[in-house]
Design a protein around this nucleic acid. Structure first.
Length: 716
RNA sequence: GCACCUUUAGCUCAGUUGGUUAGAGCGUACGAUUCACAUUCGUAAGGUCGCAGGUUCGAACCCUGCAAGGUGCACCA
């Protein structure tokens, strides 16, 4: 029976509880599956999507932590050797951008540093944030195995990444080539197709006289040196011109000789059906030039300024140059007309500046051979994506995949272990893991072999996370825990990360990296607005945890939140689950005031008819919830538990128990006491994955000499 | 342009393979209680399940078309 000074006489106080409970768990060693005393089932593994070590965790992270912790705790309770492997991501470009913003705020610039200095600075910055991230994960109750924690810059991870790079090179899946890439003039790096946004803009379309033709362009400043004029082979308007015809043309730089090219890529309906091409600065033009083996010139440099080719316009920025070039065209009488024109421009997803397509030697991964097995793995059901509609999106992307530019011209990242040719015109490159190659370039014979200054796209390394973290190929962890079970992550990195993990995992290990992908949506505020610092509607998980308790936040994030769909999180919802934690607290107080765990009889059987009925209902519910958990229906499992505990157990059963304890027969009293004790015990276990802190705290008061986190799941 | 998602009570959302009077939380209204509850309990109002067709004994759920909002992908100068 409860004493007057029992902690249950006061409301539940999460702030006083959570840290203490977490330390108890961590000290127990049970986050490490090797230490689980009675795990009689196989391994269950989740790789934590490593948070970027460049800021505090936000409420979106809280969602993934909660989901993965629920899965891990549930499986641990079911007797699996549950491994949830935590980590952090150096997040190459992302982090460098964050760091540069910090420098800008301080009135500094990254150009004050050498590459080595910048790397060291960002490393320091990253390590600080890594510590913050770990604290935040602990405060959210993450039951992950800290003894196996990894970072993407750990030496053993880099070793695996390098070995993959080498093998891919040997298998002819990696090539270095001069290809047109997305170039950001602010960040001074190329970007993959995924790191770009398309933005609809209205600009002017200029029609210009080009010899006997009228051509249209939105970018007159790139038209220096255009000497190929292209039209569709079937266009009868121009049938008098043959492929390869040479024509004298009066153009920006004076009299030039233009060559006629016929190509089916030309849309006869658009403009005049004739265009000139700028292979250095336009994706489509580049393709045409490649087909016809045409040469091109660089008109715009890395800083977005015109080159020598532009003569007197040299050094001007694009916007300025455009106006001046149009003026010149007018003077020359070459401008026919201008009209408003709506089109898409490709912008940097970080700074929104228009990306300048340019030709550069870069490292590319051939994606088609990798994509095919990845498509098959999902098609044949080896890998399941939840929600299933995401499979369509996955197929659509993989079936139309383009080669992946994995080199970045930034300091912060894993260096590419290769030698390249010092001659900027030469695209030679070779993998050189042991830094052995020296001498003249074997391709052009002019340049010297130098260390490639570029770094890997961060997704090239994080794409190898599941097997790299487990010590592929030799470590016993790899043999034991790979393939992993569930990949739980945000729906918006399906392409960036998930698809690449499948491709690289299949390529490198020959096995799928995980059999189930659970994708969650974005967390928005109560009014469905995106959370952002500038709007001031950001919910900080640590602050909210302090105010309402982490358990309350976790429940608010799970109940009614279906996979793959964005959710709205209002503070009132969190408050509601704080009350729920307190409800559970008071339920315990009531039960312990009327029954005693010292009298708990594990095999008690002398229940009244009424209590047997209640037992049946309770057990059915637990079976039902177990099925929900097995099928990743966490939103339903949590809601059912909530309702059973509040509306059935508290409102009906406890109310009704008052009469029994007041005036019932002894047999009924004893039966009900046992029912309450058993039910409270089972509720605590089943609720534990969702609300680990309050359930463990109550468990510790039940005169049980054990941790709730390693109890046995109560399916009878 | 192509694809995908969403559309259910004032708000935010559930509704697990089509099956009886469509559910929850919050909010609202009224009442009760402080007897486990820094409260809680009860009662109530509130929905043409986006629109229009179709399949079915039966549709919020399946099919077709349309509309609105959102997202992704790709592009023609």
């Amino acid at each position: 029976m409860l004493s007057e000074d029992s902690k249950f006489m006061k409301p539940y106080n999460p702030l006083d509880t959570e840290k203490r409970i977490y330390e108890m768990w961590e000290k127990s060693g049970y986050f490490n599956p090797d230490n689980l005393p009675s795990a009689d089932k196989g391994p269950f593994t989740i790789m934590m999507p490593p948070p970027n070590a460049n800021g505090r965790l936000h409420v979106g992270h809280a969602l993934f932590v909660t989901l993965e912790d629920i899965m891990t705790r549930y499986k641990r309770l079911c007797g699996y050797k549950a491994l949830w492997l935590p980590g952090t991501d150096h997040a190459g470009f992302e982090t460098q951008v964050v760091y540069e913003k910090k420098l800008e705020k301080e009135g500094r610039s990254r150009f004050e540093f050498t590459r080595e200095e910048l790397y060291a600075e960002i490393m320091k910055f990253t390590l600080e944030h890594k510590a913050n991230t770990e604290d935040d994960l602990r405060s959210m109750g993450a039951s992950c195995d800290w003894s196996r924690e990894k970072s993407t810059l750990d030496a053993d991870i880099i070793k695996v990444v390098y070995a993959t790079f080498k093998q891919m090179s040997e298998d002819n899946l990696i090539y270095r080539g001069k290809r047109i890439v997305n170039w950001c003039t602010k960040h001074q790096t190329s970007l993959s197709d995924l790191e770009t946004n398309a933005e609809t803009r209205t600009d002017k379309l200029y029609y210009m006289q080009y010899g006997p033709f009228v051509i249209a362009t939105s970018r007159p400043e790139t038209k220096f040196g255009d000497k190929y004029v292209v039209m569709h082979p079937d266009d009868t308007r121009y049938s008098q011109y043959k492929d390869g015809d040479k024509l004298p043309v009066k153009w920006l730089e004076g009299e030039i000789t233009a060559t006629v090219v016929k190509d089916e890529a030309i849309d006869m309906e658009f403009g005049t059906g004739v265009m000139t091409i700028t292979p250095w600065h336009d994706m489509a033009d580049f393709e045409i030039a490649k087909r016809h083996n045409l040469s091109g010139v660089e008109v715009i440099d890395k800083n977005g300024k015109l080159t020598d080719v532009a003569g007197e316009f040299k050094g001007l920025k694009i916007e300025v140059a455009r106006e001046k070039v149009v003026e010149r065209l007018k003077e020359l009488g070459l401008l026919v007309k201008e009209e408003a024109y709506e089109h898409n421009v490709i912008t940097c997803y970080k700074c929104n500046r228009i990306l300048e397509p340019r030709i550069m030697p870069q490292w590319f991964v051939k994606m088609e051979p990798l994509a095919k097995p990845a498509i098959d793995a999902v098609k044949n059901g080896e890998i399941k994506i939840i929600p299933d509609f995401q499979e369509k999106i996955y197929f659509h992307w993989l079936e139309n995949i383009r080669d992946w530019n994995i080199s970045r011209q930034i300091a912060w990242g894993i260096p590419i272990p290769a030698k390249i040719c010092s001659n900027p015109g030469c695209d030679y490159g070779a993998v050189d893991l042991d830094d052995e190659m020296t001498g003249k370039c074997p391709k052009c014979g002019e340049g010297e072999l130098i260390v490639d200054p570029d770094t890997f796209d961060t997704w090239f390394s994080s794409g190898q996370w599941p097997y790299a973290t487990l010590g592929y190929p030799d470590h016993s962890d790899f043999k034991k825990f790979y393939p992993t079970d569930v990949m739980e992550t945000a729906a918006d990195i399906l392409f960036f990360w998930v698809a690449r993990m499948i491709m690289l995992g299949l390529y490198r290990t020959g096995k799928i990296p995980f059999h189930t992908i659970y994708l969650h949506g974005m967390v928005r505020d109560g009014a469905r607005q995106k959370m952002s610092k500038s709007k001031g509607n950001v919910i900080s998980p640590v602050e909210i945890g302090e105010k309402y308790g982490t358990d309350a936040l976790r429940m608010a994030l799970i109940v009614g939140n279906t996979p793959g769909v964005d959710m709205a999180l209002a503070e009132d919802k969190i408050k509601g689950y704080k009350l729920f934690a307190n409800k559970l607290w008071n339920i315990t107080r009531f039960v312990l005031s009327n029954a005693d765990f010292a009298q708990y009889d594990k095999s008690f059987a002398d229940y009244t008819e009424e209590d047997n009925k209640l037992r049946e209902n309770r057990n059915n519910l637990i079976v039902d919830i177990t099925a929900d958990l097995d099928n990743y229906r966490f939103h339903l499992a949590s809601e059912k538990l909530y309702h059973y505990i509040w509306d059935e157990f508290a409102s009906n059963i406890l109310e009704n128990s008052k009469n029994i304890f007041l005036s019932g027969e002894d047999k009924a009293k004893i039966s009900r006491q046992q029912f309450l004790l058993h039910t409270l015990e089972k509720i605590l276990i089943v609720l534990h994955p969702f609300m680990p802190f309050v359930t463990e705290e109550i468990w510790q008061s039940l005169e049980k000499d054990s941790l709730l986190m390693i109890e046995k799941w109560p399916v009878e």
